[in-house]
Amino acid sequence: MPLRFRLNGRDKQILESTDLAFLYKLVRVMKNPKTKFNEVDFVTKGEDYLFNYVNNNVGGVDEGRRNFLKGILIGVAVTTVAGIVPGLRVLIPPVQSVSGFPKTLILDSSGNPIKASTLPVNSPIIMVFPYPLQNEINFLLNLGDENGNPVEVPPTTVVVPQTGDKYQFPGGVGPNKSIVAYSAICQHLGCTPPYIHFYPPKYVNISQVTAPEPNKLTVQAVQAAKSAKVPAIIHCDCHGSTYDPYHGAAVLTGPTVRPLPTIVLEWDSSTDYLYAIGAVGVPTYPMSSNGVPSNDPSADLDESQFGASVGDKTEISETNPFSS
């Protein structure tokens, strides 16, 4: 209730009750020895001293109301923080949960689906496609005999020399069952094309021993191909590892102690398209070091090593190692 008095027949208000309370409080604070009002400072510094004094010690008019509003303000601030908290998930990098191998359509280098029946036989051109992750490259091969006719690649059992483990190679696909795909990362120390690549029959002879890198064959490789009666081989120029593409990329010569992993292909006879659907054998280098064949895709699908999944399409890139 405000303080009023009557003047010339009119009510004149002089003081709000809150103001009165404020004054009372101020006087009490000023008398308190702890927060003594310094008259000397007041005289020298003037009004400023008074304002600061009041602000610091009494907190202005209507402290209760101010505290109530402060409470609301802090409440809303806390609420806002509670709203931001789920947003902090933005800091958690998305983990691609790949539970299995994707079924991926293989495209040629211009982006059209590759046709199995037009795939050149024994091509000297290195055709690689990434699968199942973007940095895992694989050869796509259409195998033939010395005369360039496609040959059927039968299923077979492949041995891992490092451990003696065995696994089943599914054989070729396509109209002639001659198309196969193997990892293009050498199991010895991880060399990639053009150091490791496919040598068509006309290059698998002793004259290739003197060819320049990366097309050089070792004498052992040529002999091993001859004794195994395979017309063409996959050979790595880094250290001379040789693989037999007709038998699941089994080891022909060291120093490698593991065959190249096989990419399982599927041929759709109505459209003539080729799909990559999985992998067998040891995992992609360097995950394969224990030499244990694995059908557990997680070994091949470790993103930290090989990037994101290729998804449902993968594109071939071509280079010709023999051009120069």
């Binding site: 947003g87 998930r89 933005v90 958690i92 990098p93 998305p94 691609q96």
Partner: peptide, 9 residues
């Protein structure tokens, strides 16, 4: 598309 609230940010 993949990062949580990535499009918001």
């Amino acid at each position: 598309n993949k990062v949580p609230y990535g499009s918001v940010v």
